[in-house]
Amino acid sequence: MALPAQPRSTPEADRARPRVPEQPPARTAQTLIGSVQRAMRLLETVAGHPHGATAKQLARETGLALPTAYHLLRTLVHEGYLHRDKGLFFLGEAAERLSSSGAAQKRRGTIADTLGRWRDSIGAPVYYAMYRDGEIDVLCVADAPACPAVEEWADFRETGHAHAVGQCLLSQLDEDARRDHLARHPARSLTPYTVRDGHALLRRVERVGRMEPVTERQEYALGTVCAAVPITVGTTACTVALSLPAHQADRLPSAARQLQHEVGRSAGSLALAISI
């Protein structure tokens, strides 16, 4: 018996027919690249041998066939993740850069967590800054909708004479470094309360006692008062600071003392996180 003829497809029929979306190949999301897995196992195993390991030893410990291990090891050496010396394999510069990057991220996380606790305890945004390569560098800010950070309307690096962060860092430098900074970033008026010139600023920071908080009131931004606590890690000048709206200026001395107390309690771990 002849089968009934199938209707011929036409462009009009094709456009009218509902389209079924293409399905991705099964288990695409779970596809793993075996060579990458094996290379990572080799890297981890080499890291466990600070005095180096041979290819045969690495193959045995990772469960890889020796030819496969040799091939991956040569590739990792070529890319700089391993280096070979007298038949032994060691971690290379590329792997060490990854390690140092991870350590830096961990340090930043430690500092950010610490600042966040202080922000919640004091009820004010908290800032961490460092003086390095001749510049003021604000590295981390912990704020919240209820206590927003000061808007950087004028570059913090160029206006260190006007804010507590900059004045605190400058107070930790020697006279030559202070003068060098002011020669590159001269004092200028930002508000009616800003210190008028570099000589006045130098006299002010010279009077700051060792490890005493530095405060400023509306010198950087109208409507804002700030305090900064010095932290010296080796020869590096650092500071942790807070800001408050001007209508809470009466809180500034007690908030500065509380911040100083918190810094003192965490000085060891904070200094370690900064210096590693």
Rank of each mutant, 00 (worst) to 15 (best):
R217C: 12
V141Q: 01
L98T: 04
W153S: 09
S189M: 11
P4M: 00
G209I: 00
C168E: 05
T232H: 10
V36C: 01
P245K: 02
E216V: 15
Q37W: 11
Q23M: 14
R17G: 02
F90P: 06
H83Y: 13
V36P: 01
A183R: 14
R157E: 15
D155E: 14
D197S: 07
T215F: 01
T194F: 12
T239P: 10
P148Q: 06
D143L: 00
A104Y: 07
R107P: 02
G34T: 07
E216Y: 06
G87Q: 04
L88Y: 08
P192M: 07
V240P: 06
L190R: 02
E219V: 10
L42G: 01
V229R: 05
H71Q: 13
P253H: 08
R19L: 15
L82A: 11
P4R: 00
C226A: 12
L73Y: 03
S254E: 14
Q57C: 10
R217F: 02
A183T: 12
L76G: 06
V20Q: 08
A183W: 00
S266L: 07
D85H: 10
Q23H: 05
L72S: 08
A124L: 03
L252K: 02
P186G: 06
L42H: 01
V46W: 11
A144F: 08
I274Y: 00
L115W: 05
R107K: 14
Y81R: 05
G160E: 08
G209E: 14
V77Y: 00
R265M: 14
A154D: 13
Y128I: 13
A256T: 02
A124T: 00
R108C: 06
D85G: 00
A129Q: 07
T31S: 03
A249R: 03
G198V: 08
L244M: 02
G198S: 15
E206C: 04
L244T: 02
Q6T: 13
A104T: 07
E22P: 11
E22M: 15
T232A: 10
H83W: 13
